[in-house]
Design a protein around this nucleic acid. Structure first.
Lengths: 228, 228
DNA sequence: CGGGCAAGATTGTCTGACAGCCTGACTGTC
DNA sequence: GACAGTCAGGCTGTCAGACAATCTTGCCCG
């Protein structure tokens, strides 16, 4: 621990495997809606567009399929996963459960500087509540980064990240509800207040409440928005 | 519904993709400890042993890596994942949270015949508590199958199944503790009693307690058993 | 006895190819 | 004119072979 910049993530890691780069690229394209749910992902097209070979493309699609972002139909190929409202509700339910667990762990284990960082992250969320959606997302990502760092469980972080990514598949209409960003900020403030008070149960409950509200907002928007 | 055997699982689907067969094969080999944690999985050896081509092997390894059963080190290849005690504890914690959620859903949604099936599954667990480990596992698998069918969430089932599989990576010493099967059966009986009483909170709490006990047993065994 | 170097082993990736299945259009018949 | 059967094309599933990059291992030399 003498030099933190040394071995930030083990020595080398200069050139990430090509496959990892492509996975990240395609995943971001899906989460950024440049690839829309239901859209077919034809292997040959990806080969041409990305300039990589077909075996690599296939490995990438398999990986994203296990993550739940693409759905592979045998003999038919891959499509960007289109969530059913039921699936989305289930995913939110699991998020509520696991993020409450993360918050509880945070209260029990996080160092004081982690608590400070979490407070700062909520401050930032409140500040950006009326900014562009992209800035809001960035602030929220920062919040979760601090939360999971402080709660200190790699498997938990990995699983929740996967759930969040899948939920994002229907994010199109969830952020743009008037007043919702302010509500969300207030709910997260309640979480942090409980964290600062050292009340794990209250913090977990507040966190679960936040996710439930977010789910309600997103799902009602889904039902009333599109007749499909 | 005139003829149930008709379209049992849609007409064809006779020949599952080769890749899926191989994934199942390797996964079962890992969970059955025919491939031990830490063991290297050399692509060429798998090619020869399984009689399939290298691209297929690579897709299989990538898929199992995302599932967490194998760990891929860049430029070094794949090894069967070896859990650290901390990781195992975290996985049990997540299982407690999510299986409690599943039980709660079961209380709220399951049909009466599902409840009956769950009772029957616990009966079977009690009956096999002193039988061979394989029969115990089979009874437990049956219990979970009923539980998740009744709680009706595919994403939840999928996620928990993944967690259970990863936990099983250290199952070697967890079942053979004297008296533990009887304890586990009693704990699951408590879950089912609460389910029959329609008390979702009690059932979820009982379920979480069961997982916590299982975790304690498995982890203490891990710490005292091997100096590694 | 330690360190550097070379050979072997293994992964990462590409090219090319072929069989099987699904989709969609075309054509022939009623 | 509408419907059904057939055929061509597209795409996936899988294989074989090959080559560069990189890591490991063991040997040789200082």
């Amino acid at each position: 621990m003498a030099d933190p910049t040394w071995s930030a993530d083990q020595v080398g890691r200069v050139a990430a495997p090509l496959r990892e780069q492509v996975v990240t690229l395609v995943r971001d394209a899906i989460l950024g809606f440049r690839l829309q749910p239901g859209q077919r992902l034809v292997e040959r097209e990806l080969v041409e567009q990305l300039g990589i070979s077909r075996p690599t493309v296939r490995e990438v699609l398999r990986q994203l399929a296990v993550e739940g972002l693409v759905t592979v139909v045998p003999q038919r190929g891959a499509v960007v996963t289109a969530l059913t409202p039921d699936d989305a509700a289930d995913l939110y339910e699991m998020r509520a459960s696991l993020e409450a667990l993360a918050v509880r762990r945070f209260v029990q284990r996080a160092a004081p500087e982690h608590v400070e960082a979490l407070v700062a992250a909520v401050d930032e969320i409140e500040r950006t509540a009326r900014s562009a959606p992209q800035e809001q997302l960035q602030a929220k990502d920062r919040f979760y980064e601090v939360l999971f760092t402080g709660s200190g469980s790699a498997p938990l972080q990995q699983t929740v990240a996967g759930l969040q990514a899948r939920v994002r598949l229907l994010r199109a209409t969830s952020l743009s509800v008037p007043g919702r960003p302010e509500e969300a900020a207030a709910e997260l403030r309640a979480v942090v207040d409980a964290v600062q008070a050292g009340d794990a149960d209250a913090a977990a409950a507040a966190c679960a409440r936040h996710i439930e509200n977010a789910a309600r907002t997103a799902l009602s928007r889904l039902n009333t928005g599109e007749p499909a």
